[in-house]
């Protein structure tokens, strides 16, 4: 029974990684950049939700909505101020370094505003636990909500990208920016929308992460951010189902590694798996590796 218990913990943690990875993968797919500040937007989201509940006394639902809105705006502003001016720069390195800079900026701003000591996150999700196998396995409400949220987001995003006009514009920009412009697609607006969606999802990821592991510091987003990046690469960066599968696999590997091998090297195992996957399948599990006719 412990195996199943670990598995559900892994899927739950992996679901959070998956939601974060979606932000990485969409931004990479469409803006062709790695937004290393993405993890820190999660932290901002969690702080906004916590502050709204404890300081402003808002209801949990309202606080979450506020967190999503603020992160969405934050993501769009970051893109506009820090990344857009560099889009025509000759080197992709410029924007990558800027992203790392934005990451530190967010961490240090949080440090300034909220201080360095860990805050304990308040329970926001009140969902009944599920008891199975005559009480031998309990699935916490948070776990259920996390997994459900992940599935809903995944299905919703897939439908959005494949069935709606802005979604098609995203795919067009992702594949060929100039050709998309010739169709009348506003590339800047499409990239803004991508950042908005990714950052809004980051707020939800922040909520779910801190609900499962309720300590919050300015560095809370950094490690999950990097792991979600690994998940996105693992699944094939640019691919939405890839981010999903990569995230969940990574969560399961991490929890199993912690449980069966060693909790100290769990993170090392995660990265070792990434290296092996990339050696065998450089484009990732769902990576696009298509032969095009010319």
């Amino acid at each position: 029974m412990s195996f199943i218990s670990y598995l559900k913990d892994g899927i739950s943690l992996g679901s959070v990684y998956a939601i974060i990875a979606l932000g990485y993968t969409m931004v990479y797919g469409i803006a062709k950049m790695l937004n290393f500040a993405h993890g820190d937007v999660i932290m901002v989201g969690a702080f906004v939700i916590l502050t709204a509940i404890t300081k402003a006394g808002l209801s949990p639902l309202l606080s979450v909505v506020l967190g999503v809105i603020i992160c969405t705006v934050l993501g769009v502003v970051i893109e506009m101020v820090a990344y857009r001016p560099l889009r025509k720069a000759s080197s992709n390195l410029a924007v990558l370094i800027t992203a790392i800079g934005v990451s530190y900026l967010l961490q240090n701003l949080a440090l300034l505003i909220f201080g360095a000591d860990a805050k304990s996150f308040v329970p926001v999700i009140n969902f009944p636990s599920l008891t199975l196998f005559d009480g031998r396995l309990t699935i916490k409400g948070v776990t259920i909500v996390t997994i459900l949220a992940c599935i809903i987001i995944m299905v919703g995003l897939t439908l959005f990208v494949s069935k709606t006009k802005p979604g098609r514009a995203m795919q067009a920009v992702s594949e060929d920016r100039d050709a998309a412009q010739l169709m009348g697609v506003n590339v800047n607006a499409t990239i803004s929308l991508t950042f908005a969606i990714g950052s809004g999802l980051a707020a939800i990821a922040g909520l779910l992460l801190c609900s499962a592991y309720p300590t919050l510091t300015p560095y809370t987003g950094a490690m999950p951010g990097i792991k979600a990046f690994v998940a996105a690469v693992f699944g094939g960066i640019g691919s939405i189902p890839g981010a999903m599968v990569g995230g969940i696999l990574l969560g399961v590997i991490e929890i199993f590694g912690r449980a069966y091998i060693s909790s100290q090297v769990a993170d090392a195992i995660v990265f070792a798996v990434l290296i092996i996957v990339l050696l065998v399948k450089p484009a990732g599990l769902f990576g696009k590796n298509i032969q095009e006719k010319v």
């Binding site: 006009k165 098609r168 514009a169 795919q171 067009a172 594949e175 060929d176 100039d178 050709a179 998309a180 010739l182 169709m183 009348g184 697609v185 696009k288 298509i290 095009e292």
Partner: peptide, 17 residues
């Protein structure tokens, strides 16, 4: 410069974007 990942139909729809 057609959008190779998209279907023929989707490419045409993008033409009418």
């Amino acid at each position: 410069r057609v959008f190779s990942q998209l279907s023929v139909y989707e490419n045409l729809l993008l033409g009418a974007y």
